[in-house]
């Protein structure tokens, strides 16, 4: 399989006069064509900042990319100029935003909102009739009758609006689809409909996908690879089997699995992770998970752990150093 996206040692900071927020601290991952990677983590782990950086949509004044490379189809996106980025956004990389209620323009009919990207990226290839036909095709694809293309967003329910947002993202058949918590605002039954639809579309169009979520259940259903993020770092990364079935894990991954109530499990008590996420303006020296880690040693508080990789399953924790060498 050929590599579509490779993110290397990406560091993103938000700088204001008062403070510097270390949002993403040196993450690396890659994604092949047709694959889906899940970015998992709690609020403030840097998942959305990563997505915004890929699209170069960080706030101009405060968001700073300190170092790293984003290689997309052989091109380093961090070196692309504004004009080139505009060509890529929507056509090559598209994004499904978290909240369908605010992602749509309330005073524009949905058909026109879907059409926007097509017209912008058209460059005279398609006639108006072809564009209209494509809009109708995409609407049908996401399960909305084409006759509703002249309706306004408020005439749709939450699940339908999210489908419209997905239709907008898919209309140019992007190579990479970034879905930022696409179902968090939806009810479980609607969530199931949307997830099934996204899976079908991915299989049919061969799109690669980055699925950002905090729901491990969704990851297990949809993704091929998983990257667990904590305080702006990927603490564990591997295939779905590595993360869900393997017996070696980063202590944070173990904590995350222990903290979710499992519907198939009859445990009396949950095992929450003690403490809170570290303040991103003031990250601890050493391992950023060390203040909450049950296996914390003195070394963890002083020295930042390296990434230890075995058969593509990587964990950044001092605990796994010996296993890799031996």
């Amino acid at each position: 399989m050929s590599e579509l996206l490779h993110v290397k040692d990406l560091v993103v900071k938000y700088k204001t006069d008062l403070e510097t927020v270390s949002a993403v601290n040196g993450i690396s991952f890659s994604l092949n064509k047709g694959e889906t990677i899940g970015l998992v983590g709690e609020t403030g782990a840097g998942k959305t900042t990563t997505a915004m950086t890929l699209l170069r949509l960080l706030p101009e004044r405060t968001g700073k990319i300190e170092r790293g490379e984003i290689i997309f189809n052989g091109e380093n996106l961090l070196e692309a100029d504004k004009k080139r980025m505009r060509e890529i956004r929507g056509e090559k990389i598209a994004m499904i935003f978290q909240d369908p209620m605010t992602a749509l323009d309330p005073v524009m009919v949905v058909g026109d909102q879907i059409k926007e990207a097509l017209v912008f990226h058209n460059r005279g290839k398609l006639t108006n009739e072809q564009i209209d036909a494509r809009v109708e095709e995409v609407l049908e694809l996401v399960g909305i009758p084409a006759s509703r293309k002249n309706d306004y967003p408020h005439q749709f329910s939450g699940g339908m609006k999210q489908r419209v947002v997905i239709a907008i993202a898919l209309v140019c058949e992007p190579d990479l689809l970034i879905a930022d918590e696409p179902t968090t605002a939806l009810d479980v039954t609607i969530q199931a409909q949307v997830l099934i639809m996204m899976k079908e579309l991915r299989d049919r169009l061969g799109t690669s996908m980055i699925m950002i979520t905090h729901d491990l259940g969704i990851v297990a259903q949809v993704c091929d690879k998983v990257a667990v993020m904590y305080a702006g770092e990927i603490v564990e990364q591997g295939t779905l089997e590595d993360i869900f079935a393997g017996d070696r894990h980063h202590p944070y991954t173990v904590g995350l699995f222990g903290a979710i109530p499992n519907i198939n499990d009859d445990a009396e008590r949950l095992n929450p992770i003690d403490g809170l996420m570290p303040d991103p303006t003031n990250l601890p020296t050493g391992c950023s998970f060390s203040p909450r880690c049950p296996h914390c040693t003195e070394r963890c508080t002083l020295e930042h752990p390296a990434v230890h990789t075995v058969n593509g399953h990587s964990i950044s924790c001092h605990l796994f150093e010996k296993e890799v060498e031996g």
Binding site: T189, Q191, A192, L240
Partner: peptide, 15 residues
């Protein structure tokens, strides 16, 4: 029944 089956389970056997 539908509601119960719609929950995504963090378990590979259900994939």
């Amino acid at each position: 029944k539908k509601l119960l089956s719609a929950i995504p389970v963090p378990d590979l056997s259900m994939r």
